[in-house]
Amino acid sequence: MTTITATQAWPGSSDAPVFREPWEAHAFAMVLRLHERGLFSWPEWADALAAQITAAQARGDRDLGDTYYQHWLSALEAIVAAKGASSAAELERYRGAWDHAADRTPHGQPIELQPHDFGPSG
Rank of each mutant, 00 (worst) to 15 (best):
I4D: 03
A88L: 02
L32Q: 08
Q52C: 11
G122A: 15
H26P: 00
I53V: 08
D66K: 08
W45L: 12
R59Y: 03
A55S: 05
G96I: 05
Y94G: 12
Y69K: 12
P115H: 10
T105M: 06
L113A: 02
S13D: 15
M30I: 15
M30V: 14
A85C: 02
V80R: 14
P110R: 11
P22W: 05
E44K: 11
L49C: 09
G60P: 02
G122F: 10
F19D: 11
H26R: 08
W72I: 00
V31C: 10
G38K: 09
A88Q: 01
A58E: 13
A27H: 05
G84S: 01
E44N: 04
D117A: 02
L49G: 09
S74N: 15
S86E: 10
A46N: 11
S86M: 04
H116M: 13
A56H: 05
A50K: 00
A16P: 07
A56Q: 12
L34I: 06
V80G: 02
Y68D: 13
D15R: 01
D15P: 03
M1E: 09
E90A: 03
S74H: 15
G122H: 15
E44C: 02
G122W: 10
R33E: 14
I79R: 14
L39R: 13
V18A: 06
W23V: 13
A55G: 12
F118R: 07
A81E: 14
W72G: 14
R20P: 05
A48Q: 01
G12Q: 02
A97N: 05
P115T: 02
H116I: 04
P106H: 06
W72S: 06
V80M: 11
D99G: 12
G108D: 05
A89Y: 01
P22H: 11
A75Q: 12
F28N: 13
D15S: 12
P120I: 08
F19G: 11
A25K: 15
H35V: 01
E36Q: 14
A9G: 11
R62L: 14
K83F: 06
A46C: 12
A9N: 01
V80N: 09
L39G: 03
W98I: 14
P106Y: 08
S121F: 15
P43G: 00
P110E: 06
P17S: 08
P106C: 07
L49D: 08
E21L: 07
S13Q: 11
W10E: 04
E112F: 03
Q8C: 08
L64V: 13
D61M: 03
W98E: 05
G84I: 02
Q109I: 04
R37C: 07
A50V: 00
R20A: 14
I4M: 13
F40P: 07
P11Y: 01
G96Q: 04
Y69N: 10
W72F: 15
A25F: 10
A29I: 09
S14V: 03
G38P: 01
E36S: 15
Q109G: 05
E21K: 15
F40V: 08
H35W: 02
A55I: 00
L49Q: 08
P11A: 15
R20C: 07
S13C: 10
S87Y: 08
A25S: 11
P11T: 12
K83Q: 10
E44Y: 09
V80L: 13
A51D: 15
A50P: 00
W42G: 00
D66N: 03
G96Y: 01
S87Q: 02
T5Y: 09
V31M: 13
A82P: 01
G119E: 06
